[in-house]
Structure formats: structure tokens, C-alpha cells
Design a protein around this nucleic acid. Structure first.
Lengths: 223, 223
DNA sequence: GTCTATAACCTGATAGAC
DNA sequence: GTCTATCAGGTTATAGAC
């Protein structure tokens, strides 16, 4: 038992319950769809406390999103580096790369029921003030995967690979959205099955010969 | 030249410029992100006229979305029926089914630069009042494609097929979003190439053997 | 059919008591 | 660190003149 309340954890209860309320409400109604009053009520804190802790609605929103995005990005890179180490200099198999790429966001989606909507909102139509931030923060956690795929699938041009990486992102996003509506979401076996099926589907698409010869496509058409 | 103004077209200029303004602003900022004042200003009509023509913000939003969704759904079915007729009772090739499925929304995306965001918003995170409407309106235009794929790919269980149909939707949505940011969007050749590459990618994924045996998956897991 | 004026309410942010 | 009260400006919808 905690006999002496610790300052750190006291501070975090208010800020965290605010973040949790924000995750749910921003996910369901979007940035403009929810007011500070609703956020404060949902979190069970006073309206004035919100500005004290986060300064503005925008800063609260940014922290709500980045609290999830940060660890996903880091985990992705960690898993990829590990897989590359295991491959001992040889190209990492396609399925392995895709698993490293998709598993962290997929698991986060499963662990936090309101995250899929938040993810989709911010990848597809972020509020204007988020666009620059995300354009800076996200690519470093995705480019290594395109590079790894390029080593494993040397017959595909970088342009086609970039495009197919966009395809793969679409699959993940759509599955996340569907999964969040399903009761089966809580079965780890079922989820592992869905992840594996996603990897199989995307791997088959990646391996197939492209109908595009590299020179037909302007460089970096998809970024 | 029009010598005598025709009632029909007079009415439609106000309502249409309102719809066009709504498409742009709702796509960019979402339902809650834009007020009736901004809509009226953008359309160059008076605030009072908006309620006269559409009754409420919700009804204007619904009409903005359905103006695009309706013809896409109808065109999809028309193309599929045509392809089935051409196949003379034999199963329609996967690539042909996918082309019928993806071409109408893809072309609409190209023709209307603000439509991709509107599409993504309403498929991923529709405003609450749209959810029931879309759940009723959209499936009739998608289920025939799952059925057609089932005939062509009889080795895949209905559950797996349903799931992969979700994957395919994700690819289309993601490509639409990316395309709307690209200048190349205006080149028909480039767009035809992207569509073909999408079809190739998805077809390869669809044809690959599933890692899921039908009985592992609860029926209609993805709907 | 189009407009103005206004009603009734909600918004984010802040100042200052406790 | 938490609260209340309040500000200035936004929201949708409506009533009634023209």
C-alpha cells in the first residue's frame, strides 16, 4: 500500500485522466467535435484545471496523439533492428519486415479501443495544426521499412515500393477501424490470426511483378 | 443562349454552389469544423438562404455526401453486371471484378479534388448522424462484389473473402488520399497506371492461399 | 426566394479567489 | 494546484421584412 502519497503520481492522475478522456472524445468526435467542457466533465476534473495542465486545447490534443504515436514508432524500429541482426546481413524476409512494421500499431489498436479512430483521424485528416508536426515526426519511423523491403525485393523500383507501402498502410488502417467494432478484438488468438492474414495478403501483393516500369513513374510520386 | 431564365436552373445555381462550397469545406475541416456562415460565404449566398434550401446543417451535409456516393454505387453495379454478361455465365476474372469495383470511386476522386477527404471522413469517422444512414446505403453496392469474387475464387472461405474485401477498401482509401495531394493527379495516363497497379497488388493478395481455415473464424467477423 | 436581425446557446481562454 | 466567474466571439436556427 502507498502510505505516503508521492508527488509524481498525484500529478499524473489529473493529467492522465484528462488524456484518457481526450483520447476517447477526440477519437469519437474529432478535434472540433468536442469542447473543453466535455473533456473536463469526462475526466472528472475542473474546467480551469485543463488550461493549467495543458495550456490550450491544441497542446492537449497533440499530447493525446503523441502519447500513442511515440512508443509505436520506437517499437517498430526496435523490432526491425532486431530482425536485421537475426538475419546476419542477409535480407530480412518480407513477412518478417511486415510483421515488425504492423505489429506495434496493431497491438496498440487492440490495447486501446479508442485509438483506431484517433489513428485514422490523424493519418487521413489531421486538424490543420497537426499536419506539419506529423509530416516531421512520422517518416523517420517508416522509411527504414521501405529501405528494408528494397533490399529484400531488389526487382521492385523504389517508386513502386513506395507506392505499395502506401497500399500496406491502407490495409492496416482499414483493419484497425473494423477491428475496433468487433467483440473478437479481445481474443489474442483471433488477433494474431488477423495480423498473420494481413501479412500474408500484403506480402503476396508486394512480391507480385509490377505493371509499372520504374521510368514511367515520377520519382517519389508517393511520399 | 438562354433568353428566358428557366426556373429549374435558377434554383440549382444557389443549391449547387452551396453543395460545392460544402464539399470543399466539409472535406477540409469536417462537419464540426465549419459553420453555416463560412459555408454561405464560400458559396456566395446569404446565410438565411442556406436554411431555406436545406433546412438544416445536417441535411446539407447528407446531400453533400450522397451526391457523390449515389452515382458511384450505381456505376459499380452497372460495370459488374456488364462484366458478368460478357463472361457469359463463367466466373469473372479477379482483375476485372476489381476494376469494376475500384474504377468508379477512383474516377470520382480524380474528378473532384475535395472528394477523397470527404470519402475518407465518411468511411472512417462519419459524424454520428451519418452512421446509420451509411450502414444502410453502402452494403448493397459492395456485397455483389464479394459474391462475384467468391465465384471466381471458390477456394477462399466467405469469411476470408470478406476480410480481404476490407483490405482492398483500405488500399483504395489510402491511394485516394495520397493522390489528392499529387499534381500528377491530372494526368489520365498516370492515373490509369495507378489504378492498374492497385488492381495487380490486390489481385495477388486475393489469390494467395489463406493462413486461416474457414472454421477458425467466426462467421461475418468482418462486415 | 432572398435577405436582416436576433434569439438562445456554446466556445476557448483568462483573471483572481482560495 | 484547483476552483468560480466571466469575457469576447463563435454557433445553429428562426421570425419576419421585402
Amino acid at each position: 500500500m502507498e502510505t505516503r502519497p508521492n508527488k509524481q503520481s498525484d500529478v499524473s492522475t489529473t493529467t492522465e485522466s484528462l488524456l484518457n478522456a481526450a483520447e476517447r472524445l477526440f477519437a469519437e468526435h474529432g478535434y472540433d467535435g468536442v469542447g473543453m467542457r466535455a473533456l473536463a466533465d469526462e475526466a472528472g476534473v475542473n474546467l480551469g484545471a485543463t488550461t493549467y495542465h495543458y495550456g490550450s486545447k491544441q497542446k492537449l490534443y497533440i499530447e493525446t496523439v503523441m502519447r500513442r504515436f511515440r512508443p509505436i514508432g520506437e517499437e517498430r524500429i526496435k523490432l526491425l533492428r532486431l530482425a536485421e541482426k537475426e538475419a546476419k546481413g542477409k535480407p530480412v524476409p518480407v513477412e518478417k519486415i511486415l510483421d515488425c512494421m504492423l505489429r506495434p500499431p496493431f497491438m496498440t489498436v487492440l490495447a486501446h479501443p479508442y485509438f483506431p479512430a484517433l489513428l485514422a483521424r490523424n493519418l487521413f485528416m489531421p486538424p490543420p495544426f497537426m499536419q506539419e508536426l506529423l509530416a516531421k515526426e512520422l517518416p523517420p519511423f517508416n522509411e527504414p521499412f521501405v529501405a528494408a523491403l528494397a533490399r529484400t525485393l531488389p526487382n521492385l523500383s523504389p517508386e513502386v515500393l513506395q507506392m505499395r507501402d502506401v497500399f500496406a498502410g491502407g490495409v492496416l488502417l482499414m483493419v484497425s477501424r473494423q477491428l475496433s467494432k468487433m467483440p473478437m478484438r479481445n481474443s489474442p488468438d483471433f488477433c494474431e490470426m488477423v495480423l498473420k492474414e494481413m501479412v500474408t495478403f500484403i506480402a503476396a501483393g508486394l512480391r507480385t511483378e509490377s505493371t509499372i516500369s520504374g521510368s514511367d513513374l515520377p520519382p517519389m510520386a508517393f511520399s
